[in-house]
Amino acid sequence: MDMKLKLVVVGPARCGKTRLSDYLSGYDESPSYDNYSPTAGVRILEFEREVRSKDGRVTRVSAELWDTSGDKKYEDCWPAITHKASGVILAYDPTARTQEKDIELWHKAFVAPLRLSDAQQLLCAHQRDPVGKRSWQPPRALEKLPFVASGLDNEDGAADLRRAFDSFLVGVVRAVADESKADTDAMMQSLA
């Protein structure tokens, strides 16, 4: 089975969305923080992956990963960016004081209107240099979402992120397949 997905990465400015996007898409397996260049609007990365469900079925996924700017001056572009999104990764830096509240606002404005299932969302508390293995918790308003605390500067953080992303992909594939089946069933019912 083949499936096309549109995945959108959102969150406040300077939280590491581009770095996460580069890593998750396979564009750059060890992205650096050394050169910060804010994303202008959106940047689209394409990748392919095989996703294996718990029952062993394999789905070949062709995905677009939309790395969005955290600058609110691009807010008018959001409807086009989110159009037909299959899943959303919400990223924030838990060490930046305001970003925990900001990510709740991003979810409310950007993600909630899409009416995605929890499995089609991944909340990522991403930090540059995880010192002392601090255990981050999701913001209370978003605690139902799948959550990963990550950092790409150590093997454990990268492995945690990869596992969470793989689970996220399984959830997105399942939700999209279920929606497609429901649409097909509804169409067949209307023809009967």
Rank of each mutant, 00 (worst) to 15 (best):
Cys77Gln: 11
Asp166Thr: 14
Ala91Arg: 02
Arg60Gly: 08
Ala85Gln: 05
Ser32His: 02
Leu161Arg: 00
Ser167Asp: 15
Asp153Ala: 07
Lys108Gln: 10
Ala125Asp: 02
Asp178His: 10
Asp67Ile: 03
Ala158Arg: 02
Ala85Ile: 14
Tyr36His: 10
Ala125Gln: 05
Lys6Ala: 03
Ser37Met: 12
Leu114Ile: 04
Glu29Leu: 15
Phe110Gly: 12
Thr95Cys: 12
Asp22Glu: 13
Asp183Lys: 06
Arg163Thr: 13
Asp129Pro: 00
Glu46Pro: 00
Met3Asn: 00
Ala125Trp: 01
Leu65Arg: 01
Met3Gln: 06
Arg115Glu: 14
Pro130Val: 09
Gln189His: 06
Trp66Asp: 08
Arg49Phe: 00
Leu24Ile: 10
Leu7Ala: 08
Asp160Phe: 03
Ala192Trp: 11
Glu50Arg: 03
Leu90Phe: 10
Asp93Leu: 12
Ser30Glu: 14
Ser21Trp: 00
Leu114Asp: 04
Val173Asp: 11
Ala112Asp: 08
Leu5Asn: 03
Ala175Arg: 00
Gln120His: 05
Glu75Arg: 02
Ala109Arg: 09
Ser150Met: 02
Gly171Val: 10
Gly132Cys: 08
Glu64Val: 12
Asp178Gln: 11
Lys101Pro: 01
Met3Glu: 04
Tyr74Met: 13
Lys181Tyr: 09
Phe147Ala: 06
Ile81Asn: 00
Phe110Val: 15
Pro79Gly: 05
Ser37Gly: 08
Leu123Met: 11
His107Glu: 11
Leu142Asn: 07
Ala149Arg: 01
Trp136Phe: 15
Arg19Asp: 05
Glu75Ile: 08
Thr68Ile: 13
Ala112Asn: 03
Lys108Met: 11
